[in-house]
Design a protein around this nucleic acid. Structure first.
Lengths: 211, 211
DNA sequence: TCGTGAGGTTCACTATAGGAAACAGAGTTT
DNA sequence: AAACTCTGTTTCCTATAGTGAACCTCACGA
C-alpha cells in the first residue's frame, strides 16, 4: 500500500504533473462579482452574514476564507461555486459556434418504430446529439432487438405517455414532463401508451470511447 | 440597484426556496475518496501536505477547512473541486445505471434571474447535466455579466418565448419547440418575453477539464 | 469651510483551523 | 503475552480567520 503510494507520488512528480494548484485569485473574483452587481461591502455583508472587514480582507487576499465562509458567499450571492472559481479573466478558447433549429425543421429520420427528428445537425464535432422522437411503436414486440449504443442518454417526455423498457429494470411508465438519464449501452426501447403517439426529446453523448 | 437587489432577494425567498446552501458533507466525501483509493490518512497527508490530525478532523466534520486547505486537497489528490463537492456516489464504470426524475421533482436551485431544476441529480459521474429552467429575467440588464461555462449546451424552449442573448450574435427570438446548440463558453443569457415566464430544457456537457 | 455620511481599510480581540505529539485500538511478530 | 507497527483519534498549543469598532477618504450640501 505504502509502496503504491510512493510510486504514485513519484510517478506524478516525474510526469511533470502539477502537485500544486493554480493561483486562483478568489479575492479578485469576488470583488469583480461584487462590483458587477454594484454591491457595497455592506450589502454583501447583509447577504452573506460575513463581516464587512472579513469581506475586505478576502478581496485583498489578506486571509484565506474558511470553507463555511465560502458557502455563505455562494449562498448569499446566489451564485454557484464554479462561477466563483472561474478565473477573473478568462483565457477563453471560445469558438462561439451555434446551431438553431426551429420547431419541426430538424432532419427527419423515420424508422418503423420511431420517427426521429435530428436537431442541430448543421454542427459537426459536437459532444451531444439531440433529437426529438415521435414514438410510433405500440408494443414491445415491435422491436426485433434492444436499441443500444455507447454512452449515456437523457430523455424527457414532451407529450403523451410512454413505457420505457430497459434490459436490467422493469418497464417504467413516463408521462409528460418526466425525465430519465441512463447508460445507453443498456438495451432500451420505447412504446407509446397514450391515445396520441408520444413525443420525447432525447440527448445522447457522442461515443468518445474512453482512451 | 439596491432596489433590484432587494427585489431579487424577495423573489428568491418568496419562491419558497432557501437562499442557503445544502449541507455539503465535505468530510464524508473526502473519506469516501480516500477509502476508494485505499489511502491512509498518512498517505493523504504526504500528498497534500496537511497534517494527519487535520485530515481526521475534516473527515469527521470537526473543523471547516480553510480554502487553502481545500486547494491542497484537490491539488494533492489530483481531483477537481466539483468532484470533491459532488455528493457521495461511487464512480462505477459499470453500465446500466439509470436515474428517474418525475415532473417537478428535480432539485431546485434558484437564482435571481433563473429558477433551475436540476434533473437526474442522483447520478454522479455523468457526462451531461440536464436541467429545466424557468426564466425569470425580463431584461438583459438584470444580468450583471455573461453566463459562461466550459463545454457545450443544448437548449429547447418548452413553454413561452425567450430572447437568447449571446456574446457574438444578435439576440435570437425562440418560441416553444425551437432549439439551439452552442458553445457555452460563449457568454449567454436568457430573458422571457412571453406573458408567462418561459420554461426551457437545457443539457450541458460536463467540463472534463483534462485531468 | 466645515460638517456629514457612505464606502472601504486597519486595529485589537476572540474564535477556530492547523500541526506535533501523545494516545488508543487492532493486528503481527517474537 | 509482551513488544512492535500501523491506523485513526484526541490533546494542547500556535497561527490565523472572523468580528466589531475605530479609523481613513472622498463626495456632497448647507
Amino acid at each position: 500500500m505504502t509502496a503504491t503510494t510512493d510510486q504514485d507520488a513519484a510517478l506524478r512528480i516525474a510526469s511533470g504533473r502539477k502537485p500544486f494548484v493554480e493561483p486562483l485569485r478568489l479575492g479578485e473574483r469576488l470583488k469583480e462579482i461584487r462590483l458587477a452587481n454594484q454591491w457595497t461591502l455592506e450589502d454583501v455583508s447583509q447577504r452573506t452574514g460575513l463581516a464587512r472587514s472579513t469581506l475586505s480582507k478576502i478581496e485583498n487576499d489578506q486571509i484565506s476564507p474558511t470553507f463555511t465562509a465560502v458557502q455563505k458567499l455562494i449562498g448569499g450571492l446566489g451564485i454557484d461555486l464554479p462561477q466563483l472559481l472561474s478565473p477573473p479573466r478568462q483565457q477563453t478558447r471560445t469558438m462561439g459556434r451555434r446551431d438553431l433549429t426551429r420547431r419541426g425543421h430538424g432532419q427527419q429520420h423515420p424508422t418503423p418504430t420511431y420517427e426521429h427528428e435530428l436537431l442541430s445537425c448543421e454542427l459537426a464535432q459536437k459532444r451531444m446529439i439531440p433529437f426529438k422522437t415521435i414514438v410510433r411503436a405500440r408494443a414491445f414486440e415491435e422491436f426485433s432487438e434492444w436499441v443500444r449504443h455507447d454512452g449515456e442518454e437523457f430523455l424527457m417526455v414532451l407529450d403523451g405517455e410512454i413505457l420505457l423498457y430497459t434490459e436490467f429494470y422493469e418497464p417504467l411508465h413516463l408521462v409528460q414532463g418526466d425525465s430519465i438519464y441512463f447508460d445507453s449501452d443498456m438495451g432500451h426501447a420505447l412504446v407509446s401508451v397514450s391515445d396520441e403517439d408520444a413525443v420525447v426529446l432525447s440527448v445522447c453523448t457522442r461515443g468518445e470511447s474512453a482512451a
